[in-house]
Amino acid sequence: MSTTGQDVLSVRDLRVWYGTERGAARAVDGVSFDLRPGEILGLVGESGCGKTTLGRGLLGLLPRGAFVDGDVTFKGKPMPAVASKEYRALRGAELGMIFQEPMTRLNPLMRISEHFEETVRAHHPGVSRERVRHAALEVLRVMGIPPTRYRSYPHEFSGGMRQRLTIALALVLRPAFIVADEPTTALDVLVEAQIIKILADLRREFDTSLLLITHNLGIVSEACDRVAVMYAGRIVEIGDARQVFRSPQHPYTQELLRSTISLSTTGLSFIPGSPPDLVDPPAGCRFHPRCPHAMRVCATQAPVPLEVAGGQRVECWLHGPESQVPPGGGEPLHVREELSVADEA
């Protein structure tokens, strides 16, 4: 995992902690990854594992009281301090965000054309209306929105069209990196499939890298180049999407895939328990209370990231390194905490 000069984004040991009444919630706790130009990275994991926090943290969109630490390099330069003026200038022009609910981005009182004018002029003041229209119609065309609708209001569009509008708005300045947080969760199956197809086609039309946060593993398998599996604030497995889906190496990834209901499901399977409280996560491997393969070492020592045969990076003692496992650490962990059936997220 080397930081090559051509990476759009490279994240090293990123931490985002929320201050809560009970102490710090380590929503993102030591995350590292790289993103190449035009690449789509899927981010999956159960609810509350820190996916949204990671995505927002990268864009500096965190709420008051959040603490950020770590190094983020964007296009070879270190990212400016969050909330600084330079950061705001980056957002929109170089960094974009697509939300789950499109109306959070669209102002019901403004025409689509005005949305585009506002977005473009925020970064390039004084651009003529004609030029904005030209740029906007081009992205709208890719999104399948007819130019006849350029002067309509948001409420004149259906849910799927609105989501395409927000994508178009995020793309109009051709940012190098976009975070899409569950962009299709609120949409119907057929429309979801349409949007996913559009997102998957993005790299052909624009050179945009995408961090696609989703609950739907099928979407990742269809649209993403690489996938990162997040558990309790850490990326436990990251690698080529096909490779990870074909032969998942981390027990959490394996269980997640097994518990997903698909057309070929003939029996139900599920992970007992729920993701841990991030204020006080389990010691050692955070997955050990739920892991079917947990060993003694897992309960005491955190596993180290390791590149495995398939090329993915995995954090799990099953893959070694043997040298760091204390004697007897490889024994199965017998005293697993009792997990109630309904102890779920």
Binding site: G23, G65, D69
Partner: peptide, 13 residues
């Protein structure tokens, strides 16, 4: 305004 706990930098390391 909720009462939030301040996080000190040293804590995270």
């Amino acid at each position: 305004k909720k009462r939030l706990q301040k996080i000190r930098r040293e804590e995270t390391i």
